[in-house]
Amino acid sequence: MITEQGVKDFLHTGGYIADDAIATAVFLALRMEKPILIEGPPGVGKTGLAKALSTALDFPLVRLQCYEGIDEGKALYDWEYGKQLLYTQLLRTQLDSYLSVSADLREAVERLSAEESLFFSKNFLVQRPILRSFMSEKRSLLLIDEIDRSDDEFEALLLECLSDFQVSIPELGVIEAKRKPLVILTSNGTRMISDALRRRCLYLYIGYPELEREVAIVRVKFPDLCEILARQMVDFLRKARELNLRKAPSVSETLDWAQVLSILKATKLTPEIVANTVGVIAKHQTDLQKVTELAVQELG
């Protein structure tokens, strides 16, 4: 049986440092077979958690990137019209001989309609991400990324899939998931997600990590970076986050910066180093200035 500590440990092996809230959420999602809805600022590792989970649990990752205007043809399934047409053309002679046995038109129609299901079978079904993860023989991880970019209609479409793990296809009936996938939805909060969807999920908010956790994250990703420098840069970035920047540096920026510093073989943060590499952490012109000033103030 998996425990919360177990979750933490195997996420650690996947290169992801989880805190208690994350570990508990994952543990519950696995046990209760419920989706997790993750919200938080960009770059704090929402998608990263899904990726780490998929490697750690050895669940194949099925990713659905949402965008404005996504519909069931892109997310659930589609019919392969071309193939259907091709088959009818190719099978024409067979069909002729098959139907020629029948005495009159009525019988021919009956014979044909008995075989109707052939043309609306799974052969001609194109599986899109959600259906693919439901049909997977192995338990999979379905990542529905940036759900806030999709429209309300698509959210409503997800309700059936997420609560009952089934897809209704008018021609085929209801298809149930072979193995219920672990579903992770992420959102940047640019649009309010409906309460109906929230209710079906466990809700996890990932904010900026605490000092120790962020240092640990840097240490895991870049083991050759010395700990003092790691601590110093994380400390600096935490101060930068309080500066009221247009785009606050997030964990992904921390990691980028760590990489830059380790390439430059820096051993200590100085205002010069910050000024030279500030483009990695600040992404707006006004922010650049504020961060450079902070560096002079803090490190000078």
């Binding site: 809230a21 508990t24 519950l28 809805l37 929230r198 466990l202 809700y203 996890l204």
Partner: peptide, 11 residues
């Protein structure tokens, strides 16, 4: 944490 995960759905 358990209660928060299951009962609260908004930051």
């Amino acid at each position: 944490q358990l209660l928060r995960l299951t009962l609260v759905k908004n930051v």
